[in-house]
């Protein structure tokens, strides 16, 4: 087990190094950012001076070296637009994204898994039809389109939710979410929900016909017990990996959903920084998101190994 964790750790480090490589050369591909940053009414000397100041006239290898050296310590330099360290900006936007991602994950779990369970136990029933429909729609409806429709129906016409923004509620120094998170979280949760419904349903259907379930029934164990002890426990195993991977994606922030709802999270910041070609910030967010995904994948693998004693390493 320890060896397994160690080897996964080393793999993760290599992946992250690859990400840094891509993130750095992505900047080189788009040309010299200096001309984008300087005022239009600038003389060629001004452009040269700024290039010098920002170090863009150094050899690429030297630039890469100092980029890696900074990245290892979480220092991606200052945002060109905000004149603040890129990491600080990311951390300041993180709570909003965590709130949104966690709510979205919770919604998809609460709605997706029960639906999948019922459907898997009663194939061909109304619930099965509903679950298959939800699974299909959740994964095929473009969520930015759905978001706009939700705003029109629930905010503009019914007035149940604010149309945009994040309102919070502070109790005893704790920042708590309000209903403003529900529309964006629901739009964001749909894809994960669809996946959960489908996987839960097929896992339950598969496990129902396993030998050990038949054996349990033949031993005379009550249906309830068989269901909880054998079917649910085994169905939970593949769900761990879905939840882990999906949460990683949700946490890196959704550009569309956060932009449509003006949600002050990472996705919104990323969209803004790409639009303004704020390279330090784009690099930092790209790396940060990859880091979160790689880290959560690592945790998922470990959790998987712990949850399923049949897996041997």
């Amino acid at each position: 087990m320890q060896r397994y964790i160690l080897s996964r750790l080393i793999q993760s480090v290599f992946i992250l190094f690859g990400v840094l490589l891509i993130v750095f050369f992505m900047l080189q591909l788009t040309g010299d950012p200096v001309s984008l940053m300087i005022s239009r009414h600038a003389t060629p000397e001004d452009v040269e001076a700024l290039r010098e100041e920002l170090g863009f006239n150094r050899p690429v290898a030297v630039q890469f070296g100092s980029f890696i050296a900074g990245a290892v310590t979480g220092d991606f330099g200052k945002s060109l637009r905000h004149k603040q360290p890129a990491m600080d900006l990311i951390l300041s936007r993180l709570p909003a994204t965590i709130e949104l991602a966690a709510t979205a994950l919770l919604l998809s779990l609460v709605l997706g898994i029960p639906l999948g369970l019922v459907a898997g136990s009663n194939p061909g029933s109304f619930w099965d039809l509903l679950s298959r429909g939800t699974g299909l729609l959740g994964q095929t409806i473009p969520n930015f389109w759905l978001a706009l429709i939700l705003v029109l129906v629930f905010s503009v016409h019914l007035g149940w939710f604010p149309t945009f923004g994040r309102d919070t509620w502070t109790v005893l120094g704790l920042t708590l979410p309000t209903r403003s998170v529900l529309l964006p979280a629901f739009s964001l949760s749909l894809f994960t929900m669809g996946q959960l419904v489908r996987f839960t349903r097929s896992a339950v259907m598969e496990i129902r016909s396993e030998d050990y379930v038949r054996t349990a029934y033949s031993k005379g164990i009550a249906h309830r017990k068989v269901y909880i002890r054998h079917i649910l426990r085994n169905a939970a195993i593949p769900l761990i990996s879905i939840v882990g991977v999906q949460f990683g994606y949700l946490l890196s922030g959704s550009i569309y959903i956060e932009t449509i709802f003006s949600w002050p999270g990472l996705g919104n910041l990323l969209a803004e920084s790409i639009g303004n070609r704020d390279f330090a910030l784009v690099q930092a967010i790209a790396f940060f998101s990859s880091f979160v995904v790689v880290f959560l994948n690592l945790l998922t693998d470990i959790a998987y190994a712990l949850a399923d004693p049949r897996i041997r390493y």
Binding site: L148, T163, F164, G165, I260, S262, E272
Partner: peptide, 8 residues
């Protein structure tokens, strides 16, 4: 309040 999306 910043609202980047014009439809919003």
């Amino acid at each position: 309040r910043p609202i980047p999306e014009s439809a919003t």
